[in-house]
Amino acid sequence: MRASRMLLGGVGVAVAAYGVKLLLDLGLGNLRATLEWLVGGIVLHDALLAPLTVLVGAGLVRLSRGGVRIGPLVVGGLVVGTVTIAAIPVLGRFGARSDNATLLDRNYLVGWLVLVVLTAVVSLGVLLVRGRQRP
């Protein structure tokens, strides 16, 4: 196993180095703009999103210490939270153009509300059914 790990690691370093070469070939201006986003992504996650989940998590732990069974609600929150993050570009319609009606041509806010309501109904349904099974 040690040999195959060394091999995998070596290949990984070579592959990443090729990527760095491709990136450098795109010029310094491009590199600067890329690094802003590379570092920005890590900072946004580690300094903003992750602490936020710590706070939410602390609240959820307190609730479940109080004996409330909230598993299905947490899963529902996970679905809505992560899918909302994935949908930021369409929710904000940042790429919309007045000369192209075929692009971003839905009411995304209504879609988001549908997702929230549907998830809430399913989560509560699971919670109720489970509660009845295990009184």
Binding site: G12, V15, A16, A17, G19, V20
Partner: peptide, 10 residues
């Protein structure tokens, strides 16, 4: 494309 090689290598 370049960053994909870095990601998959890492």
């Amino acid at each position: 494309y370049a960053m994909a090689w870095i990601a998959i290598g890492a």
